[in-house]
Write a protein that binds this DNA or RNA. Sequence first.
DNA 1: TAACCTACCAAACACTTGTTAGGGAAGAAT
DNA 2: ATTCTTCCCTAACAAGTGTTTGGTAGGTTA
Lengths: 195, 195
Amino acid sequence: MTASPERRRELLDTAAEVFAAQGYNATTVRRIADEAGMLAGSLYYHFDSKESMLDEILSTFLTELWDGYDAVLAADLGPRETIEALVTESFREIDRHRAAVAIYQKEARHLTDQPRFHYLADSQVRFEKAWLGTLERGVRSGAFRADLDVRLTYRFVRDTVWVAASWYRPGGQHSPEEIARQYLSMVLDGIAVRT
Amino acid sequence: MTASPERRRELLDTAAEVFAAQGYNATTVRRIADEAGMLAGSLYYHFDSKESMLDEILSTFLTELWDGYDAVLAADLGPRETIEALVTESFREIDRHRAAVAIYQKEARHLTDQPRFHYLADSQVRFEKAWLGTLERGVRSGAFRADLDVRLTYRFVRDTVWVAASWYRPGGQHSPEEIARQYLSMVLDGIAVRT
DNA sequence: TAACCTACCAAACACTTGTTAGGGAAGAAT
DNA sequence: ATTCTTCCCTAACAAGTGTTTGGTAGGTTA
């Protein structure tokens, strides 16, 4: 009745991989077990439901994410430097938790209805507070343009960062830091040549 | 055995709405029928499978999308003007086919395996050719920065545009054209104040 | 009036789904 | 040597899935 934490982590990793590739609902518990080299029922020695696997995948990811974000926010940097740090940290998280991020993006919206996953909505609120607040601070300080809809800018920056999880593959030719640098350069300065 | 085209379109619209909200696999055929005010079996008078509904939703969307894109590309504008026109056209498509776009984004990746949906992969290739080609043309002509990874830029621009479908709601306070203008301003010139 | 067509319902089908219960093999602990 | 613990298997269950078949109310046509 007691399962080893390492085995749990292993199984969660393969589960996350399949969830990310096929979608949560499209993934059968038999497929996960197959990928892990065991039978469907055996998974229930380690977890008490398919949903709790998803829960554990998402919650551990969000926990680690907020560890990083809180560290950045606690540093009390200027608006532009905060955005830079948040973006860089985000790409590092994508590098570490690619599957979890992909799952989060695909499933978060319709999971927030369920009470069990209400922490997803909480996280989203904190998320908006951090990013939107920093952007507004930047507009006031003159670091960011004032002629743009800040809310639109927020969604723009947020989405551009996290969608990268859909194509990013760890071990590719660009490191997370390199991608972050290029993304920041595009978001901050634009892709057009200055005239 | 013969169904009216208007009724088909009506049912496809409600189906698309549910698919977009819950995900294709998580959506039961009974839920769609319920939303349409009829019983599950009755859907099979109009369509021969759940999959063919998805197929028809996606293919009609892509057809209309490429009608718009081809018109833009045929105009033979400069690189920057082409990007501007493509982005604007994209937001108009999101306005018209919000549900279809959302479905496309969530399900396209793992649908391309099935032969039936192979046209999704074809479309993606054409898509990349149009956008990436325009960006490269812009770099050569000096309109776009040469110090950025063009491929990364492509994914950046592509994603930033289409992810908007996940939060965009028709009839909101911003028209598609207004959103396109702000997005283009951000992508082209950046959100930072020029020093 | 009779035949027909459209658009749906009622009821079931075969199958897949997540999940459970009991058991057993292999090693560790006593 | 025996008990215990860990980890998995076998085999099944109940619920839900997409789909089919036969029927029928109501309007249209002949």
